[in-house]
């Protein structure tokens, strides 16, 4: 626990960060007072999901130095496997366990596919490429993304493969805001997954090894960590999380080849805001972006929802090139 406190105090030491956090809190309060509690509730639900997608992205970058522009396609894989599993279970739809089975299957599919992609692509690249790793992997992830989009199109077509809702019941009321059961489900899944990821990285042997690789790769080798396996695992976890997010949000993102574009865009916004490779920061920044989107949508207009957060990012990067929370996880490519 003292460790967590220590980390937090370190991150909040900078007056710029503290000022920004204060600004965000002020914005939240302003939004709630002037707009309504729904701004807060919606930001929490959306933020949790963005946090989930962005955490994987941050992890991949932090541990592997791979700027993953195919993360959105793993989200797409999640929506697709979610759809296929859910419709295959149509006989027992309505049973409360079905959505959980569905998203778990998507998690597994994303995880396995991520592992395969790493073994087939990045592990091979590691052996051959010494220089320009970030640029090369960037190009390769774009390629992977194109391949996955086209594979989807060829095999499953461009139709929208979606569902009405996982849970049928009437929406529940939180602080006077009605929230569909599916969104309650989504925020719960996101909370549990983020907590799980946090625990894994902070306290488990494997999580420590992943962090070790991200902080010092030769050091990790020196203590006996199979670095290659940790990278594969990292990419698999990150892909699994994106797929999990996709399946969980199937009710809002019906599967089609390009469904990953928007989540990818947001996830990158979040990760850049947080500081590349900073997993914890990405979670916080996910909520900040969601809050900004909601406030922009309410006070300025929804068409500006992407513009304002992006303008903010440009501003922050001008003041703090390493992002809001800096690069807490130092990435391998810096060495």
């Amino acid at each position: 626990m003292s460790l967590a406190v220590q980390r937090l105090s370190r991150e909040f030491r900078s007056p710029v960060t503290t000022g920004l956090i204060a600004g965000v809190l002020a914005l939240a309060i302003f939004g709630v007072v002037r707009g309504g509690t729904f701004i807060l509730v919606d930001s929490l639900v959306t933020g949790a999901i963005w946090a989930l997608v962005a955490a994987g992205l941050a992890l991949t970058f932090g541990v592997m130095g791979v700027p993953n522009f195919a993360q959105g396609e793993f989200f797409m894989v999640g929506t697709l496997s979610g759809y296929l599993v859910y419709t295959a279970l149509s006989g027992v739809q309505g049973r409360p366990y079905v959505p959980f089975v569905t998203i778990l299957m998507a998690l597994v599919v994303g995880f396995v596919l991520g592992a395969l992609v790493d073994l087939a692509v990045f592990s091979q690249m590691r052996r051959r490429i010494r220089e320009g790793w970030v640029m090369n992997t960037f190009v390769v992830t774009v390629g992977i993304s194109v391949v996955m989009i086209n594979a989807h199109q060829l095999i499953w077509g461009t139709d929208y493969k979606g569902i009405v809702a996982y849970f049928d019941g009437p929406p529940i009321h939180v602080l006077g805001v009605s929230v569909a059961l599916d969104r309650v489900f989504a925020i719960s899944v996101a909370a549990v997954s983020i907590a799980g990821l946090w625990w894994l990285l902070s306290y488990s042997r494997i999580g420590r090894a992943i962090r070790a690789v991200s902080q010092d790769e030769p050091g990790a080798l020196m203590v006996g960590i199979n670095v290659g396996r940790m990278r594969t695992l990292t990419f698999a976890i990150s892909s699994g999380l994106a797929a999990l997010a996709g399946a969980t949000l199937l009710f809002q993102f019906p599967s089609f080849p390009f469904v990953g574009v928007k989540p990818l865009y947001v996830a990158w916004t979040v990760v850049i805001l947080a500081g590349l490779g900073n997993v914890g920061g990405a979670v916080v920044a996910g909520f900040i972006i969601a809050l900004l989107e909601a406030n922009t949508g309410f006070f300025i207009g929804s068409a500006w929802e992407d513009v304002v957060p992006f303008a903010l990012i440009v501003l922050i990067l001008a003041v703090r090139p390493t992002g809001l929370f800096g690069r807490a996880v130092r990435s391998v490519w810096e060495q």
């Binding site: 460790l3 420590r208 962090r211 070790a212 902080q215 010092d216 030769p218 050091g219 990790a220 080798l221 020196m222 203590v223 006996g224 960590i225 199979n226 670095v227 807490a328 996880v329 130092r330």
Partner: peptide, 27 residues
Amino acid sequence: RGDLVNGLGIGLVSESLNLFTGMTVYE
């Protein structure tokens, strides 16, 4: 590979130490 060498019982204290700077002493 380095991790396998370590597993055989060879420990290295390198020149640049290669500590995990984001982890505690205990970790």
